[in-house]
Design a protein around this nucleic acid. Sequence first.
DNA 1: TAAGTCACG
DNA 2: ACGTACGTGACTTAT
Length: 589
Amino acid sequence: MFETWLAKIEAAELVAVDTETTSLDEMLAQIVGLSFSVTPGEAAYIPLTHDYPDAPVQLPRDEVLARLKPWLENPAKAKLGQHVKYDRHVFANHGIEVQGYAHDTMLQSYVLEVHKPHGLASLAERHVGRSGINYEDLCGKGAHQIKFNQVDIVKAAEYSCEDSDQTLDVHRVLWPRLQADDKLRFIYELEMKSSETLYRIERNGVLIDAPMLATQSHELGQRILQLEAEAYEIAGQPFNLGSPKQLGEIFFDKLGMPVIKKTPSGARSTDEEVLEKLAEDYPLPAKLLEHRSLSKLKGTYTDKLAQLALPRTGRVHTHYAQAVAVTGRLSSNDPNLQNIPVRTPEGRRVREAFVAPAGSVIASADYSQIELRIMAHLSGDEALLSAFTDGLDVHRATAAEVFGVALDQVSSEQRRYAKVINFGLIYGMSSFGLARNLGIETKAAAAYIDKYFQRYPGVKNYMEQTVVFARKNQFVETVFGRRLYLPEINGGNGPRKKAAERQAINAPMQGTAADLIKLSMVKVQDVLDAEKRATKMIMQVHDELVFEVPEAEVEWVRHEIPRLMAGVADLQVPLLAEIGIGPNWEKAH
DNA sequence: TAAGTCACG
DNA sequence: ACGTACGTGACTTAT
């Protein structure tokens, strides 16, 4: 039976593959069984390590995998899957580096219908009108959930075969739609290549200095205890500083502080902005502010990162979600390595624990002002284009225009304002939003925006035309043709329509930046491979790539990586990437 | 599970 | 008159 299927997949043009495993954690998952589908309506399941009372004897796992390995590692044998990056890890856990993954239905869906769900069950229902066995019906949920190796083999076979078969069916619907559109096909191919690079990054992991984090945790813990005692003293009673509800009672009822703003659900807000304001008149809010920020550091970073490192290697392996962010960005989870602190000195210490092994260093290469450069390209605004072409500090140049002063006469306050305006433009701001952010009158903010648009009329025109385009087409697109559908831009109520307009303005810029860094990741990895470099790509943080670099390759990396990143596209503005190198992530900046 | 808050680009 | 800057993930408390 197994031999028959082996012959079948060897001969097939394209084979859908699905793995069943012991864990959703890709680095730890062990294979339990796998299924193949070559022809619609036909699939085979190979049970390997099902383990329950009276489970039938199964084929020996390692022998089966050894027989499959040549086919799996043959790049000429095309494979297809749903969420292929996960399956790559699973096979890698058994020493198999799969080659020839030609398609991933999850990424097909992400490119064609980014605003819809991308799970196989949803895809099968939407595109081929099929429903199947629910994973929770098979394995239960919550504390009662069993592992896949405890699932009855007959049921497991039905489930897994259905998955392979549905994957093939969905592919037969979505792939022709991608083939029919050159731009979407280009984006899909970029996603497929990115998927492999992301697998490599995840597999590499990042070395963590666990003892350093433990020291930081201890110090933070001491300071947090001290702050708690001080807060109880001021409040006149102990309370839970982590509870916004209890905080509200102490602040607003007991101590009579004024309510500054309400949360969406109507509760009295105690967020950072409110605490800053109240700190002007009361002693307690400052204690809370410091307590909040230190608890965040300890609870989310210094305590957690070391726990998540694999004991054997001391490395943490994040998971990049490639089909979550609607703009085309990645997201990172378990742990999220895209929100490691950087804005405060205490926070930055966490980055000192992101290290390289002996003989290597950390390099961090990031795009300079990538979204504003894209705004210049998309809008074609002459003044903004010149600012970049001339290599100016763009916030300074903006300030000079808006405040009508010479470049060298711009004050730091004026530059700060200009920076907030520039960010606001990327986000589709209103005068109200700008005013709130700068802490000025709405009228004054409106005047700045007017002035900006007088000086940069191309930007104003671009913003307007983008919304017009979105209303007409129900989508917007990046420079490379990645689409974001915005059904609510015409339907929907007032606020939702406005929100869709802001998305329409933001998505082409954020999305083009995402396209560019994906192009960079793929390009840089290709060159590293072609030159057989030992440098490893270990993180992506939206406009930044981080590498672990052997000392012998430092000078090559310093010169070549920024050059490769700047060269991935030819826009109306030059792209600029800058690189820093150091013993840890903090020092590499 | 939702709400509130806060870390990042 | 209304709500009010884009995109994420994780933690804690309360329900």
